[in-house]
Design a protein around this nucleic acid. Structure first.
Length: 991
RNA sequence: GCCCAGGUGGUGGAAUUGGUAGACACGCAGGACUUAAAAUCCUGUUAUCAUUGCGAUAGUGCGGGUUCAAGUCCCGCCCCGGGUACCA
């Protein structure tokens, strides 16, 4: 009887669920191991074959660790707040909670079918009040904290208040309190503080709180009706939906992640994450060290402060550029230039982010008419405004050194400003010389110094003269935390006299209220403003924005440790036992979003003494993307057709009746198309000029036959019945066309059938519902079984590589599973012998044990599958049915194919699950060879093989080889110059 | 532009510290079994030349180099994928 995977897989999935086989305990004598997958967002499309890739890998690892005697925590849950469910709610009026529940149920069903060893008792959902209660609680801790630069830790805001009460505040230069943070508040004395109004005090405190309210430039997305964080914006459009994003000044909740910039950067050293992710985070944090420097404005008390990393080039400054939004712009602009400046500032403000990024190359700017005085030469230097200077970085002003900065160079060239050479080594007539190498020239006291020394000296002189001081800047911005959306965690804040107050812990969770519509109010307030009678203590307004999607996922790894605790977000005992994640698997697309925020929150919670770890995950593996193959149908434009030319195609739907073809012999053919034709699609093999076409995706389920890897033919009947605009469309093929289920020849006469195929093009891209190229695991599981899907996804190639999905090799894996089954059976009956195993059998097993162990440790799951195949092939050839071999084999294969392994284990006579068996150790003595078949090569080219006993020394092998008849043949009578013998490896004879 | 990862048969991909390139699998071709098909099993399969057999030559994106020996190390370049984008 053949292996019945349907029955067996179902049986064991039920067994595991009923027996809670994968339940993890919070205490154990065993060492702990925590394997975590990145949270899925349960979208309406369900899981596609790309999702399980990482889950299968982590599941193999988790199962392996259990077999190795570890107490394994391997949980799963859902990141269930978010935009898609809400967008769906807006369209249909259905509560997002219902959509979310349905989607989760579908995910769960799909996950269960693949046989994952999750401890489902620990499932969490970010949208459940018993979960978001603690997300809100952490927000309150952030609100009640400030970052003390002296201790380099977050502390309760009360320590800051007592500092104000005793010492007051010295203003932005109060290093001890502000460090590198930009605090916009004047200094005050202790006495003044005590007399401040509550409002005034809170204004000051908002400058320090880790969760704070401020007027910030935000990424506003009008179509989504919300602000977005920097990493949710890609190329000037929203990551979800692709809607335009504009800059807007709004009062917003933000998190002061910048306080942690240095630690987020430095602590990367201590974690075993992929270098690419670490590098992406380093770039995102963007630390740069330089100096601030003040330039006095001529005939004014104002000063322009700039930030530069190249103070050595101070004598190369030929102008100063301000960002259009710079506060000094209005103040310093001369009357003569006012009009030009105002126009420019308006222009710059109205340009969308998208436009600005699209024409990076386009240089724009205007002269203010004002000048600064060079602090060393005393010369006049013009002040310009340019939008290549960003208001949000540094001081929003730069000292332009066109000789040694390519952006300044481009600006200077464009507006014909002087270019001064101060570092020797470049050719300034062609381009700026940006390298930090060479000797300083034309630079007074810096002349002759190397750039690095000059930087040091310049900073020293600048500081000495009180013109500025050494300073570090980060590219990282504070994270905007409010979203003007419904489906998210309510921010636990209410307003009393305009001052924000947080809720008491006992008042949590602040439940998401019911609303009549999921849209903003008429006055533009977020959806929560629609909630009826939703007021704190019946009178104070709540905050109407909700938290962003990443709030819940910034601490979920902790909740899994203690998922049902009602007293605290995670108990001390649980977190002290589980510490942090040992292995985290997920996509690289979260490099600068989730993975940065979760590190930030972890450090913060550690500062407060709530958890013992400073990093969420010790090791991180990125799985590659499984791409989909979409199929593209061609339409439109003036067409050249192979063998004929279509002359006029005014493709207005009602104007295609008189298509004129010119056939190969040059005669015109007037094709009469019916009047109600609503569109024309072209088979890809009739198009010779791809430039003239546009394409749209069609459902890959309509494909019938693959022509080659780039093209397939499509089922026109299915396509015609698909969507409205396909129903009354004409499908043009080489010799005929298809319309409403009927074929016509090109003269417009009905024909019985056509031997034409309608061809669509393939394209490899991200799997997505909108591209109609999604392949779900369900059909795979149905057809081949979960074990086969698991093995096949691993067999496809290295985990971290992206690859398009194809099922070409699936039969190989399926055959392997059947072959494995047959090894344990003779016909229908289990056939196991208790005889001792032979040497070749033991060798086949133990070399596999060795290989599989090292493969798993190195996350090289694809080679494991190959090695299982080799092992089973060898044992099949040896006709091995010995218990001594087949029992350990079942165990080592169990992490990969748990269902069949359980069944075989059971048939071997075990009543317990294979999950807690112990992984066999490799016995090296079975692998020891007594001889080696040496490849004998001449000048590095292998010619033949010769077997020698391994006890032979190098010298003996050399002597033996030289006596061989074959050797003599290749020597052709010459004497070898040199003979290299590498023991157990190779013989190379140099002639 | 910058940063990161890649480039090996018709395809997915193997290859410890430099040491037999192409494991394993798909596909393809031929064969066995079968009334037939499916399933299964066997043989072959980098290219070119030669072929009765033995074999010869080339070959891991391209061009150089180091070495007895290079897919692997070094230098220069090309191509594809991902990230990032005026960060002073």
């Amino acid at each position: 009887m053949e292996y019945n995977f349907r029955e067996v897989e179902k049986k064991w999935q039920q067994y595991w669920a009923a027996n809670k086989t994968y339940k993890a305990e919070n205490q154990s004598a065993k060492p702990k191991y925590y394997v975590l997958d990145m949270f899925p967002y349960p979208s309406g499309a369900g899981l596609h074959v790309g999702h399980p890739l990482g889950y299968i890998a982590s599941d193999i690892f988790a199962r392996y660790k259990r077999l190795k005697g570890f107490n394994v925590l391997h949980p799963m849950g859902y990141d269930s707040f978010g935009l898609p469910a809400e967008q769906y709610a807006i369209q249909t009026g259905q509560h997002p909670e219902i959509t979310t529940k349905t989607n989760i149920a579908r995910y769960r069903e799909q996950l269960d079918k693949i046989g994952f060893s999750f401890d489902w008792d620990r499932e969490v959902r970010t949208s459940n009040p018993d979960y978001y209660k603690w997300t809100q609680w952490i927000f309150i801790q952030l609100f009640n904290s400030w970052y003390n630069k002296k201790t380099n830790k977050a502390e309760n805001i009360s320590t800051l208040i007592s500092c104000f009460e005793s010492n007051g505040f010295k203003g932005t230069s109060d290093d001890i309190l502000t460090g590198d943070l930009e605090i916009y508040h004047d200094g005050f004395t202790a006495e003044e503080w005590k007399n401040f109004s509550e409002t005034n005090k809170e204004q000051v405190l908002q400058q320090f709180r880790l969760a704070y309210l401020s007027d910030t430039m935000v990424n506003w997305c009008p179509q989504l009706g919300t602000v977005l964080a920097n990493e949710e914006v890609k190329d000037g459009v929203s990551e979800r939906g692709g809607y335009p994003v504009e800059r807007k000044l709004m009062k917003q909740w933000s998190l002061r992640i910048t306080a942690y910039a240095d630690r987020l950067l430095n602590d990367l050293e201590g974690i075993d994450w992929t270098e690419s992710i670490k590098e992406a985070q380093r770039n995102w944090i963007g630390k740069s060290e330089g100096t601030s420097l003040k330039f006095k404005v001529e005939n004014s008390s104002a000063e322009v402060e700039v930030f530069t990393t190249r103070p050595d080039t101070i004598f190369g400054v030929s102008f100063v550029t301000l960002a259009p939004e710079h506060e000094l712009v209005a103040q310093i602009t001369t009357a003569a230039q006012k009009k030009a400046v105002d126009e420019y500032v308006t222009f710059a403000k109205n340009r969308s982010e998208r436009e600005r990024m699209a024409d990076v190359k386009k240089i724009t700017g205007v002269f203010t008419g004002a000048y600064v005085i060079h602090p060393f030469t005393g010369k006049q230097i013009p002040i310009w405004i340019g939008d290549y200077v960003l208001a949000g970085y540094g001081t929003g002003a730069v000292m332009a050194v066109p000789g040694h900065d390519s952006r300044d160079y481009a600006f200077a060239k464009h507006f014909d400003l002087p270019i001064i050479e101060v570092v020797a080594g470049g050719d300034l007539s062609k381009e700026s010389y940006d390298a930090k190498e060479g000797k300083l020239i034309n630079s007074d006291f810096l002349n002759g110094l190397e750039v690095k020394e000059a930087i040091k000296k310049a900073i020293a002189v600048i500081e000495e003269k009180g013109l500025g001081k050494g300073k570090t800047n980060f590219r990282l911005r504070d994270a905007i935390f409010g979203r003007q959306r419904y489906w998210g965690e309510p921010i636990p804040v209410y307003y009393k006299n305009g001052i924000p107050h947080v809720l008491k812990e006992s008042e949590l969770p602040l439940m998401l209220p019911e609303v009549d519509k999921y849209l903003p109010t008429e006055t533009g307030e977020p959806p929560l403003a629609r909630a009826k009678d939703w007021k704190y203590e019946g009178k104070y307004e709540y905050e109407y924005s909700t938290m962003p999607g990443w709030a819940g996922s910034s601490w979920y790894f902790l909740r899994y440790m203690d998922a049902h605790n009602e007293k605290t977000f995670v108990s001390k005992e649980a977190v002290n036992y589980w510490q942090n994640v040992d292995l985290y698997i997920g996509g690289a697309e979260h490099a600068t979003g989730h993975l940065l925020y979760v590190r930030f929150w972890t450090k913060f919670l550690n500062d407060l003494g709530l958890i013992p770890v400073i990093e969420p995950a010790k090791k991180l593996i990125n799985q590659g993307m499984i791409q989909g193959v979409s199929s593209k149908i061609a339409m439109k434009k003036d067409i050249s057709v192979t063998g004929m030319k279509i002359m006029s195609t005014n493709e207005k739907p009602n104007d295609v009746a008189g298509l004129v073809f010119i056939s190969e012999d040059g005669t015109q053919q007037n094709v009469i198309l019916p009047n109600d034709v609503r569109g024309i699609f072209y088979s890809q093999d009739v198009l010779s000029d791809k430039e003239m076409t546009v394409e749209r995706p069609v459902d890959i389920n309509f494909l019938i036959r693959s022509i080659d890897s780039n093209y397939s033919s499509v089922d026109l009947l299915q396509l015609t019945n698909w969507q409205d605009d396909f129903k009354s469309a004409v499908y043009i093929c080489k010799k005929s066309y298809f319309y409403k289920g009927v074929w016509y020849n090109l003269s417009g006469q009905k024909i019985e059938k056509s031997d034409d195929s309608f061809i669509v093009r393939h394209e490899v891209e991200k799997m997505s519902k909108s591209k109609w190229n999604v392949v779900t695991p369900d059909t795979m599981v149905e057809q081949y079984g979960a074990d086969c899907l698991r093995l096949y996804e691993m067999f496809l190639g290295p985990l971290e590589l992206s690859k398009p999905w194809n099922t070409n090799g699936i039969t190989g894996v399926s055959n392997f599973i059947r072959k494995l089954w047959r090894l344990y059976h003779n016909g229908d009956a289990v056939n196991i012998s208790n005889e001792p195993a032979t040497k070749p059998e033991l060798k086949a097993l133990h070399k596999t044990i060795k290989k599989i162990s090292s493969d798993i440790e190195n996350f090289s799951f694809n080679t494991s599958v190959s090695n299982f195949m080799i092992c089973v092939n060898e044992l099949t050839d040896l006709k091995c049915n010995k218990r001594e071999i087949l029992e350990p084999l079942a165990i080592i294969i169990a992490p990969y194919a748990p269902h069949i392994a359980e069944e075989l284990w059971n048939r071997l006579g075990h009543s317990e699950s294979i999950t807690y068996a112990s992984f066999p150790e490799c016995n090296e003595s079975y692998l020891v060879e007594s001889s080696f078949n040496y490849p004998v090569s001449f000048n590095g080219k292998t010619r033949f093989f010769q077997e020698y006993d391994l006890s032979l020394t190098k010298e003996q092998v050399e002597k033996e080889v030289l006596t061989l008849e074959q050797t003599q043949k290749y020597l052709e009578g010459k004497t070898p110059k040199k003979v290299i013998v590498v023991h157990n490896k190779i013989v190379n004879i140099v002639i």
